[in-house]
Computed example of a mutant assay.
Amino acid sequence: MAEPVVAAGPSVERVFRAVDAMDAEGLGALLAEDARMVFGNAPPLVGRAAILSDCLTFAAAIQRMEHRVLRHWVVGADTIAEARATYTRLDGSGVTIPVVSIWTARADGLISHYRVYYDPSPIFA
């Protein structure tokens, strides 16, 4: 019996281009309407609108961010990206921290589940 065909999700480059640009519209175009997103051990954000609202709130607390992807893997519908993220604080200082992002795409290629594993405390220290 053949394995079911699973659509590949958005590329690592496309996801981090939207994230690093703090482009809510661009990120929203990659998410399913009912997507779930979890940052570390925070409660899940459910729905595109909730995810984008939270991302805009975070973006207002920093000047910029940039992810440097070290490695990534695509396994079926899942993409795993190991990166170093550099955040520029509002005072102009910066900090770089390790981040692992995992997202799962639906058959239509939109992200249904997005998980980000990192410790954001150094950003606001």
Results as ranks from 00 to 15, higher is better:
Arg36Gln: 12
Leu70Glu: 11
Thr79Gly: 01
Ala32Val: 07
Gln63Trp: 06
Leu90Glu: 04
Ala50His: 02
Thr57Leu: 12
Ala49His: 07
Ala61Ile: 04
Ser53Phe: 12
Glu66Val: 09
Asp54Val: 04
Ala42Tyr: 08
Ala32Pro: 12
Ala83Phe: 03
Ala83Lys: 01
Val38His: 01
Leu31Met: 11
Glu66Gln: 11
His72Val: 01
Leu56His: 11
Pro43Asn: 13
Trp73Phe: 09
Ile80Ser: 04
Arg89Glu: 00
Thr79Ala: 06
Val38Leu: 03
His72Arg: 07
Thr88Val: 15
Glu66Ser: 13
Ala81Gly: 03
Thr57Lys: 14
Leu31Asp: 12
His67Phe: 06
Leu30Arg: 02
Glu82Leu: 01
Pro43Gln: 12
Arg64Phe: 06
Pro43Arg: 02
Val74Ile: 14
Asn41His: 08
Leu45Val: 03
Arg84Thr: 04
Arg36Leu: 06
Val46Cys: 10
Ile62Cys: 02
Glu33Phe: 02
Cys55His: 05
Leu90Ile: 11
Gly40Asn: 09
Leu31Pro: 04
Asp78Gln: 15
Ile62Asp: 01
Trp73Val: 15
Leu31Ala: 06
Thr86Ala: 07
Ala32Met: 02
Ser53Trp: 11
Val46Ala: 15
Glu33Pro: 15
Val74Gln: 15
Asp34Met: 08
Phe58Leu: 14
Leu31Val: 05
Arg48Trp: 03
Thr57Phe: 02
Ala50Val: 02
Ser93Met: 01
Leu30Cys: 05
Val38Gly: 00
Ala42Trp: 09
Val74Met: 07
Arg68Cys: 01
His72Phe: 14
